[in-house]
């Protein structure tokens, strides 16, 4: 496996739970202890009630494709072997939305509204990136 050259997170005290969760195969986000809002992106402060009190909570990892694009233009050389690659805006069951990739299928096989679930892609010993795969309609 060649060296991973694509952008990686800088692990900080603020985001460590998210990335450690991903390493353990869990999608984790911050839940406000005062108003219960589950937020993303990661922040020290609840954007709804401004509370600093929160806990990290495990999410189901399930969601659906809210919008979906395919990058053909190469904006960053690190992705030169990947284009065309997809990015989905995923609506998670618990409320938040996040950008990620849908893996395991052709780019053309994904459409808005498709049900997805998180999978975990260890790209370096330290970093595992949450991505998504299509859920079978029967499940």
């Amino acid at each position: 496996m060649s060296e991973y050259t694509k952008p990686l997170p800088t692990i900080t005290d603020e985001n460590r739970e998210f990335w450690e969760g991903a390493r353990r195969g869990k999608l984790r986000m911050q839940k406000c202890r005062d108003c219960g809002h589950i937020r993303y992106p990661i922040s020290h402060c609840c954007p709804k009630c401004l509370s600093y009190n929160f806990e990290w909570t495990d999410l189901s990892g399930r969601g659906e494709v809210f919008s979906y694009v395919v990058f053909h233009q190469l904006y960053n050389q690190a992705f030169k072997d990947d284009v065309p690659y997809n990015v989905a805006l995923v609506q998670l069951e618990e409320g938040p939305r996040m950008y990620s990739n849908v893996v395991g299928v052709d780019n053309d096989a994904v459409k808005v509204g498709d049900k997805v679930e998180a999978v975990f892609d260890p790209v370096t010993p330290e970093v595992t990136i949450p991505r998504f795969r299509l859920r079978q309609p029967a499940k």
């Binding site: 952008p7 997170p9 998210f18 694009v69 990058f71 960053n76 990947d82 690659y85 950008y99």
Partner: peptide
Amino acid sequence: ASGWGDSFAIWGFMAACANSAITAARHMAL
């Protein structure tokens, strides 16, 4: 790339075109 801190470029999401493509794709789907 857009996003602060853990930039969305981790997932390859970057460039001004991408935000408008998100709008276009959802408008087309709906």
